[in-house]
Simulated scan of single mutants.
Amino acid sequence: MKTTLTVFLKEVKENLRDRRTITSALLYGPLIGPVIFVLIMNTVLTRELNKADQPIKVPVIGAEYAPNMIAALKQQGLLPQPAIADPEEAVRNQGAEVVLRIPADFGTSWRKGEASQVELIYDSSQRDAGSSVERVRHMLDAYIRRQGAMRLVARGLAPTLMAPVTLDERDQSTPQSRAGQMFAILPYFFVLTVFMGGMYLAIDLTAGERERQSLEPLFANPVPRWKVLLGKLAAICAFSLTSLLIGVTGFGICGRLIPAEKLGMVINLGPSFAGQVLLIMLPLVILLASLQTLVAAFAKSYREAQTYLSMLMLVPALPSILLSVMPVKVAEWMYAVPLLGQQVGITQLLRGGQLSAQEIATCVISGLIVALLATLLTARVYSTERLAISA
């Protein structure tokens, strides 16, 4: 163990002097996610909240044909704007989010007691228009229900005839589970933080030393190569784990800066959440360190190793992508699959759920087994003469 400890301390000390490694592992990797996330979420939430509190401006074509309806919509917060010549083109070009068009025969149909039609023109592919369209649709629905009820009363009928079935909705979501949906991408940020924390170190300790022709003299020493490998892996894991700790802390701080409570959500990224995340991510730290070292061992230069590891970076994204496009019910077997188990476990914590001791143990033990296999494979590659030959 003395050899392993010596290699570990040497690599940690040398890489603490390397600005690129420090920037990637301890600054850029762990902090870029929280900073970008809080900026995006604050911008989006602030804009949507401001839009919800302010009257909504909607161009109205034919407002003179339904003055009573326009007056009722004004009371709900609609601010009619002058008519535009080509509403379809205006909506497609984002000149207007939504346009209300009232036909000339609206009044005639209304007086006859017939159904009067209005058109709501919008482009559902425009992301910014969604909330505005929903607000206008809600205003129109409220006006339609009220006028329908008044017509029935005028004819001596009960308004309840319009609704033979009443719907009582019981939403079982909690403020924290709704917040968990908003933070669904957070597990991938944690995996990416671990990856970035050890990537440049793994490249430098394998392909970098091979390119500098310092790996061959190191292997010439009368010590088992697996001890040298363990020292290097321990250094990579130390940087990755530190990066993860900074990232989890960063998200915990940034979570307090997001006005989620205004949307009826609760974000809990406190010490309990951080501790469980660090525990279930620990096997992934070892696994990714071994995989990064293994892939870098096949590169003859620093730049070539960067290319290989950039492609490897796509692998941790697969569970997040699959779960986002193919929502599945959480099953116990998922905790036994590395990457997927971490994704599912962290998502459960974000939704306010609790991970049982069995689920945590399954996630940790299965991850450690796979990490051990990856380490053994890396040690096998390290024992070959091909790796000792510098480029």
Rank of each mutant, 00 (worst) to 15 (best):
T3A: 14
T4K: 07
T6W: 10
V7G: 02
L9F: 14
V12G: 08
V12Q: 06
E14N: 13
R17V: 14
R19K: 15
R19S: 09
R19M: 13
T23Y: 12
A25I: 04
T46A: 11
L49A: 11
P59V: 05
P59L: 03
G62R: 05
A63F: 09
A63G: 15
P67S: 12
I70Y: 05
A72K: 04
Q75K: 15
D86R: 11
E89Q: 15
A90R: 12
A90I: 12
R92N: 14
A96T: 03
E97G: 14
V98I: 10
V99Q: 03
I102D: 07
A104T: 14
F106S: 02
F106H: 03
G107I: 07
W110P: 13
W110M: 15
W110V: 10
W110I: 10
S116T: 04
Q117T: 15
E119H: 11
E119F: 12
R127D: 10
R127C: 03
A129T: 13
V136W: 01
L140T: 05
D141G: 07
A158Q: 14
A163W: 11
V165Q: 13
T166I: 12
L167D: 03
P175T: 02
Q176L: 02
A179R: 02
G198S: 05
Y200I: 07
I203Q: 00
I203A: 01
A207V: 02
G208Q: 00
R210K: 06
R212K: 09
Q213N: 13
S214E: 03
E216W: 09
F219Q: 05
N221K: 14
P222L: 00
V223M: 13
L229A: 09
L230T: 09
G231C: 08
K232N: 01
I236D: 01
I236H: 09
C237L: 08
F239H: 10
F239G: 02
G250Y: 09
F251R: 00
G252A: 03
C254V: 15
L257A: 05
I258E: 07
P259C: 09
P259H: 06
A260L: 01
G264M: 04
N268V: 08
N268I: 10
L269G: 06
L269R: 08
G275S: 04
Q276W: 06
L282P: 09
I286H: 00
L288K: 02
L291V: 14
Q292A: 05
Q292E: 05
A296I: 08
A296E: 03
K300D: 14
S301T: 13
T307M: 12
S310N: 08
L314E: 11
P316K: 10
A317F: 02
P319A: 01
L323E: 00
V328G: 10
K329G: 14
K329Q: 15
E332S: 07
T347E: 13
L349G: 04
Q354Y: 10
S356I: 07
Q358Y: 06
E359M: 15
A361T: 13
I365M: 15
V370D: 05
V370H: 09
A371K: 14
T378R: 12
S383F: 00
E385F: 11
R386F: 05
